[in-house]
Amino acid sequence: MECYFDNSASTRVLDSVKDIVVKTMTEDYGNAAAKHRKGMEAEQYIREARRIIAGTLKAAEKEILFTSGGSESNNMALIGTALANQRAGRHIISTAVEHPSVYNPLTYLEELGFEITFLPVDHNGHISLQQLEEAIRPDTILVSVMYVNNEVGAVEPIEEISRIIKAKNPSVIFHVDAIQAYGKYVIRPKKQGIDLLSVSGHKIHGPKGVGFLYIRSGVKIKPLIYGGGQQNNLRSGTENVPGAAGLGVAAKEMYTDHEEKIRRLTELKDYMIDRLGEIEGTLVNSKMGTESAPQIVSVSFEGVRSEVLLHALEDKEIYVSSGSACSSHHPGISGTLKGIGLAQKYLDATIRISFGIFNTKEEIDYCIDTLKELLPVLRRYQRG
């Protein structure tokens, strides 16, 4: 039985997504900037995708900017906003557990002379709202906080964070990395006080290589890519019609019968956590129910290196992650696991199991049975 439990890294595309991507590659393949009929047909796909996505956020269509994915969205949100607003100040606040596509642009801005404050998190992965309030200064121009942590599934209180930011300094721009949250939560940027929101298509059963950045009307931001002036001069380059069309379909599918989809994901997560309790020497780092994201289970196994376990499971056609797949080619201990205060013996013994809409309880049972079979052998081998 093949069990794909790495949906926070990437998901299998929906059939409806595949169909529209193929159609826009083989039939309606024009350049959306062209003035002839083929170009106008292509442009219509872009417009429809933007309309769908804006609808899921109750946002204006002009506030949706298509990108190549989550990393570009985060880079543009941070670097573009910092450069556009640096006359107002050069202080930025973020957290110690951000994804590399947030952390690394911030370190780049630090090299340019910006001052970055990284807030610590508690054992549940949450920042201190008091520390946030104390960190905001008159020269603070940007705060960036991830909605859902990609490793342990911790959910930050985004609306409360925004209230604190705006009460202390109304001119501060609030960016949210929602790459693990979009499709799993009903997100209303205007109601929640979000100015910038990053999303990636391949986390929601859409195509790879496409995402979007929500930019609230009035937010000053500089483009990172210059050229032909596409997307209102904010992101030049020939528009990715198949990607945008596929992302639009995926967004529509995820928010159709949304409550039922999330109830089922939560049920799978809770079932997995319950069954992991049957295995000795196991520590689950994610909360049950609605206390954490519905799709992520972080679990540590005493006495077994995560990479060894990952490949042992792979041999049984069970696919998990030993951390964030976006940085898996750069080995090292996770900053998130350190940040939540995980004991030393678990830091290199943690895997992430993440669910998508195609997973079943039968797959979980197979995974648990396989773990019960593998762990005693691997533990004896590693002790030896």
Rank of each mutant, 00 (worst) to 15 (best):
I158T: 02
E159A: 14
E159W: 01
E159P: 01
I161F: 03
S162Y: 00
R163W: 12
R163I: 09
R163S: 12
I164W: 00
I164L: 07
I164A: 02
I165Y: 06
K166D: 03
A167Y: 02
K168S: 09
N169K: 03
N169R: 05
P170I: 07
P170K: 12
S171Q: 04
S171L: 02
V172M: 00
V172H: 01
F174D: 00
A178E: 05
A178R: 02
I179S: 11
Q180K: 12
Q180S: 14
Y182G: 12
K184A: 12
Y185I: 05
V186E: 11
V186S: 04
I187D: 07
I187C: 13
R188L: 04
R188W: 00
R188P: 01
P189I: 01
P189V: 04
Q192R: 05
Q192C: 02
I194T: 01
D195V: 02
L196Y: 00
L197F: 04
S198H: 08
S198Q: 09
V199A: 14
V199Q: 07
V199K: 08
S200K: 07
S200C: 15
G201E: 06
G201D: 09
G201V: 06
I204Y: 15
I204Q: 15
H205T: 08
H205R: 10
H205N: 10
G206Q: 14
G206E: 14
P207E: 12
P207Y: 10
K208P: 11
K208T: 13
G209Q: 07
V210T: 14
V210M: 09
F212D: 09
F212K: 05
L213A: 05
Y214N: 04
R216W: 02
G218C: 08
G218L: 06
V219D: 10
K220W: 02
I221G: 14
I221Q: 08
I221F: 13
P223W: 03
P223L: 03
L224Q: 11
I225Y: 11
I225N: 05
G227L: 04
G228L: 12
G229I: 04
G229V: 06
Q231P: 05
N233Y: 06
N233K: 07
G237P: 02
T238M: 15
E239V: 00
N240D: 10
G243H: 03
A244K: 05
A244C: 13
G246K: 14
G246M: 10
G248F: 11
G248P: 12
G248R: 08
V249K: 13
V249H: 09
A250M: 15
A250Y: 15
A251T: 13
A251Y: 15
K252M: 13
E253K: 04
M254G: 11
M254E: 15
Y255E: 08
T256L: 08
T256K: 11
D257K: 06
E259H: 01
E259Y: 00
E260L: 10
K261I: 05
I262D: 02
R263Q: 11
R263P: 03
L265A: 01
